Amino acid sequence: MDYVGIGKRIRAQRYKLDLSQEELAEMAGISLVHMSHIETANTKLSLPVLVDLACALGVRTDDLIFDKDTLGKDELLEEITLELDGCSKEQLLTLRQILSSSKEAIQKYLER
């Protein structure tokens, strides 16, 4: 398991939510020292702690374990589907148009 990568993804999500290490540690029920060691990969975190951190950060455990840049096509499609879940019909229609336009622009760019 890539503990360095997990620590970096936890830190990035924590920054995104504007949380201090202390705040996240409290939310996850761990000590500040343990939180620091997790982010710097100086310790291996247990599955229960990983789950608690994911819940506190509002993400899935997979989001902390796996680097999204290395996901395969099926995993990327699943990620996109999860992002679209809960959208209204109007939002989906708009996103479909944006996706279609973006795909066309990318194709033209790659053909240069």
Rank of each mutant, 00 (worst) to 15 (best):
L110A: 10
G5H: 10
N42M: 02
M1W: 08
L47G: 04
S20R: 12
E79G: 12
E83D: 11
K103A: 10
F66D: 00
K16V: 02
Q97K: 15
T43C: 08
C55L: 05
Q107F: 08
T70E: 03
D74L: 14
G7V: 10
R60F: 00
E39L: 08
E26H: 14
Q21V: 07
K73M: 03
K16I: 01
V4T: 14
E83C: 13
N42T: 05
L71N: 04
L82M: 13
L17D: 09
R60K: 11
D69R: 10
L99F: 15
A25S: 10
G7H: 00
I65K: 05
I98C: 06
T70A: 11
I65F: 14
I65P: 04
H34D: 03
Q97E: 12
L99R: 11
R11Q: 09
D62M: 10
D52N: 15
L64R: 02
D67K: 09
P48S: 15
T40P: 00
I65E: 04
L93E: 11
L95P: 00
E75W: 07
S101V: 12
I6H: 01
P48M: 14
I6E: 01
E79A: 15
S101Q: 12
I6F: 02
S100H: 14
R96V: 03
A41H: 04
R112L: 04
C87E: 05
